[in-house]
Design a protein around this nucleic acid. Structure first.
Lengths: 346, 346
DNA sequence: TGTTAGCACTCAAAAGAAAAGAGTGCTAAT
DNA sequence: ATTAGCACTCTTTTCTTTTGAGTGCTAACA
């Protein structure tokens, strides 16, 4: 409990009591409540004095003169940091729920978001991992008609993408065979990062008359694997209505909107992934969050990792008075699950 | 204007005025307002008499004794029916917007929903067409590893699906060749409906030792093309917040929830497609809607058709005081667009 | 006979006033 | 250092009053 130099043990306990109580009720907490709530037997008057101090130090706030106190962002921050310190690990029965429908990646991720939302009662998001470093397993080109090719790209982890490529030249069986051969002798085992300009030039040269087709196909592959906008799956957005402090202010509307557009959620993903401290859990409280419309919320994120540095993000968005303890525990479990599922599939 | 036997021309005009005004303001409409609003020069007193009649006949309602009138469901119904009678056609600049990103089907549909939402300011949904009658173009099986096959299924309209099939037997090149050959000699040109048990049995027989694999693959194909839950794309769900009569009652919350779950939207799709009167526009007002949580809304739907009886649904959900005229016009345009896009691609 | 002016009446919504209640800060006693 | 006590503050709730839009009805009018 000796994380903070500004607060003695008693103040810390009182602060904790205020926060916990506020998490439960959502109402400002008064001194009398605390004096009954804690095990340290103090009268409300004493608590009042201490609370006045805590307010001076900026850990709690009085919404108006004669109201109880609510935690400030700084207060929440301290509380969360303390929680983080005692890393918990506990495996729930989420595994079964998860594995049920594990088929294609998008389904898994969608399912993950849902499980998390149901388990926590907050809004959740899961981003697909970035594929830059994922290796190609093979490419299968098939001819659709005289000028169209469908390219099926299979990557490690059996992630499958497909794309139709329209080419100028008139295609035939022979060309298709050649192209398939060409691509599959050099590309498998490479990641998108590794397929650079030199490599492309070499392939084009080998292709001879079909240089242009190869170019088109490679472009298509690039844009397919690395789509301009990350895919993000969400669930439980409507959970925000459950918290009056969000749904009263209209901030629920903004959050739901952000969830629908998904554009802004990307911000959160980028920010989370950019932090060095990965594979850990991050908590953004109030204004700390990257997205303006969530300034009245807390955002808890975690990074999951598939082999070879492919990373994705899981996030939970809820009111500041979030049940951090439960959320962090659940998040950790799910993260581990995702890691395992993907590694097993590989 | 002679659609209704119950109402003379003047009553009809007054009713229309009441509805139009209510559509604009969302507030109950009084007699004085109408007397100024219409071109028939009548005093408020006369209007009052007529309005009392209209109320007796059930076309308008008084929320409380000394308030103006608002249209009843019956009133809206008459109004919409009149609109429907004058089938409008008008091409807007939506074409460009639509064709911009026309790539894969899911993107097209997602885009369609978005365009519609932006154009109308209501919540929108677009369902993917049912594929029962769509014909297979070809199937491409590739071996992933010793026990896994990836099946890529290409259908008319270049709709592509893929699925990983895990099989008992140990696979090799020879087997894969045989399977590909087998499937592509008999299946192309057939629709899912046409691939019946007899056909499957015949294929299995021809496959000999690989009968089981063929069975698995065919199953996979079936379930891929005809997923248990229809895919539905939505957009602009948060538009419902723009209408106080929805967002005050909490019915906005329910609607948004329905949009998130998508389960209930399916109801609307099914109902729309089951109506004989297809390729037309349907309007559900208030309790007429198939989904309970939208009882305070109007739902406008349209069916778009890809060749061969593959049909999908477009829907708009908004307040009862919806701008029916604009919505129906926009819907019709979009419908035509979709038809064209898909037919062109084919 | 249909239309209209006028007026009393109704009722929801807005504004205002009063009461209740929760909680504080401060002082004085322990 | 802790606590009981009390005056004070400010929100919330409740009740009352006022306001105003809109009606229905009657009587006058063209």
């Amino acid at each position: 409990m000796e994380l903070n130099h500004e607060l003695d043990d008693r103040k810390l306990k009182i602060l904790q009591a205020v926060i916990k109580n506020y998490l439960e009720t959502g109402e400002p907490v008064g001194s009398r409540t605390i004096s009954k709530y804690t095990d340290l037997n103090l009268s409300s008057a004493t608590i009042r004095n201490e609370m006045a101090d805590l307010e001076d130090l900026g850990y709690i706030i009085q919404p108006h003169t004669s109201a109880g106190r609510i935690p400030s962002d700084k207060g929440y921050r301290l509380y969360v940091d303390m929680l983080m310190a005692e890393k918990e690990q506990e495996v729930i029965e989420m595994r079964e729920q998860m594995l049920e429908k594990a088929d294609k990646m998008d389904k898994i991720l969608k399912q993950a978001a849902k499980v998390l939302a149901v388990n926590t009662n907050y809004a959740t998001m899961v981003s697909a991992p970035n594929m830059n470093r994922n290796k190609l397993k093979f490419i299968q080109l098939s001819q659709v008609d005289e000028h169209q090719i469908i390219a099926v790209i299979v990557m490690e982890g059996n992630i499958i993408k497909n794309k139709i490529v329209t080419v100028e030249e008139t295609l035939n069986n022979e060309i298709m065979l050649k192209l398939n051969m060409l691509l599959n002798t050099s590309l498998p085992g490479m990641s998108i990062e590794e397929i650079n300009l030199g490599m492309i030039a070499a392939l084009k040269e080998q292709a001879g008359a079909q240089a242009e087709i190869i170019g088109d196909v490679l472009n298509a592959i690039g844009s397919t694997i690395q789509p301009e906008d990350l895919e993000i799956y969400t669930s439980g957005a409507t959970n925000v209505f459950k918290y009056p402090e969000l749904s009263d202010n209209h901030s629920a509307q903004e959050i739901i909107n952000a969830f629908e557009e998904k554009q802004m959620l990307q911000e959160i993903v980028t920010q989370t992934l950019s932090k060095d401290d990965n594979h850990g859990i991050q908590v953004y409280i109030g204004n700390e969050t990257p997205v303006q419309s969530m300034k009245d919320c807390s955002v808890v994120t975690a990074t999951y990792e598939l082999g070879e540095g492919m990373q994705g993000t899981i996030g939970i968005i809820g009111p500041k008075r979030m049940d951090y303890e439960h959320v962090m525990k659940t998040l950790k479990t799910l993260m581990t699950e995702l890691d395992e599922i993907f590694h097993k599939e590989e």
